[in-house]
Structure formats: C-alpha cells, structure tokens
C-alpha cells in the first residue's frame, strides 16, 4: 500500500461509530489534490479490495471492506 492509500485506510480505521463515508469526506485528507486525484486513490483501494462501495441506490458511500453491519443479514 502506498502512502496515499495508507492515509485513507488510517482515516477509516481511526473512526468509531461510523463505517461508511461520503466521497467528500475524503477530500480534506489531501488538501493539495482535486477530487479526480482523490477518486483515483479510492478506486485503487477498491480494486485492491481494501475498500468497498455501499449504495442506497441514489447515493454511494465508501467503507473498509467488511466494516460495519454485515450486508447479507436478510
């Protein structure tokens, strides 16, 4: 994992009580970078199976893979 990916993972592991975050929540982690660059970091983490998407259908959030309530508790 590179330094930028580690910043995202550290941010997520440091949070308690919340497991899913909006894309905008990650922008302050990289003050010098625009949204498109931050998106690339998050996409690389999704592709590496460190992060996963959570979608309500209308809105999408990011979280650590497996974090939070299990999804298949139907």
């Amino acid at each position: 994992m590179n330094e930028e990916q580690q910043i995202v993972v550290d941010f997520l592991t440091g949070k308690t009580g919340k497991s899913k975050f909006y894309f905008n929540d990650f922008l302050p982690l990289f003050p010098g970078k625009g949204p498109r660059d931050v998106k690339k970091i998050l996409t690389s983490l999704v592709n590496a199976e460190k992060l996963e998407f959570w979608s309500s259908g209308s809105t999408t959030m990011y979280g650590l893979k497996g974090a939070g309530k299990p999804d298949t508790d139907a």
Binding site: V46, N47, E52, F53, W54, S55, S56, G57, D71
Partner: peptide
C-alpha cells in the same frame, strides 16, 4: 441499500 454490486463498479 447495501454493498451488493459487481467487482469494481460502484
């Protein structure tokens, strides 16, 4: 809602 999806797609 949920994490259901296909790999790499949000």
């Amino acid at each position: 809602g949920g994490i259901v999806g296909v790999f790499g797609y949000g």
